[in-house]
Design a protein around this nucleic acid. Structure first.
Lengths: 140, 140
DNA sequence: AAACCAAGTATATAAATGGAAACTGTTACT
DNA sequence: AGTAACAGTTTCCATTTATATACTTGGTTT
């Protein structure tokens, strides 16, 4: 459903009050942790990586690269490092030859995927509508 | 709660199957609508704009600029245009002098805010944990 | 012997983005 | 006359970010 009740709106405002209510605009925090954390986790490539790891419990570098199609080696490796540093994913290296490295979600990462997936699903379901809006707007 | 049950995981995989199951990796779609739509709506500045419009039903340009602190005129005006084109927000210009322009969420935008807010809340609640992870990782 | 795989790294180049500051145009205030 | 407010737009420049390509290291396959 797309219709939003007044009640929902009120709850939304309450939540936003919790998040934004305390900010002092005369001295805005130069580095906001939420912005910071969000900019890592909500990055275009990172979200795809995390979602694919929600789909397959374990993935190796080259598999990931195949699924997250279009990503370059460099960016994939960068993002994996950051996602590991922030605690979303785990990297297990087996000292075989050739070396095998397995990436998987941590529990924390799994809980993130749940949230992210809600959003991604919404995007999936509503992208036709957005594209239609965009088209219409372009014609005006 | 951060603990994820097996049941939840199964549901997650099912949803991801719906989203990703059909992709042909021999011929990956050159432009994926979900990626496209998501890259607009999940942009760092756009999310903040939309959230603030969820907090205050109507905001004018300079108010928005104050709340979304750190954003430049150029980027704010760009993002507002794109968000309008994609159908999230509405722009009402009153031909007064000096001109008054009011931005507000559409119903569609409001339904997006609901989803986005869930994620933002999660970020808000978990950012300390992420920051702690990051710290620990840096020390290794 | 040449080629290939793994999981990246390194390098060089290209592209997108972003911010600062100045400017627009009308009106009202001092 | 000067200045401020509004809602942006425009220009230039710097920084960031991304991509493609080649390379690594050791062993295994052709």
């Amino acid at each position: 459903m797309e219709t939003v009740t007044e009640n929902q709106k009120v709850r939304t405002v309450k939540k936003l009050e919790k998040m934004f209510g305390h900010i002092d605009f005369k001295n805005p925090p130069e580095l906001c942790p939420v912005r910071d954390v969000m900019s890592v986790a909500s990055d275009q490539w990172s979200t795809l990586i995390v979602l694919w790891l929600g789909y397959f419990p374990v993935l190796r570098f080259n598999k990931l690269k195949k699924y997250v199609y279009g990503i370059s080696n460099k960016v994939l490796s960068q993002r994996l490092k950051v996602l590991e540093a922030d605690g979303y994913i785990e990297r297990k290296a087996y000292p075989e030859v050739p070396i095998r490295v397995e990436y998987s979600l941590t529990d924390f990462g799994q809980s993130y995927v749940e949230k992210l997936l809600d959003l991604a699903e919404w995007m999936h379901d509503n992208s036709p509508k957005v594209l239609a809006n965009r088209e219409k707007y372009g014609l005006l």
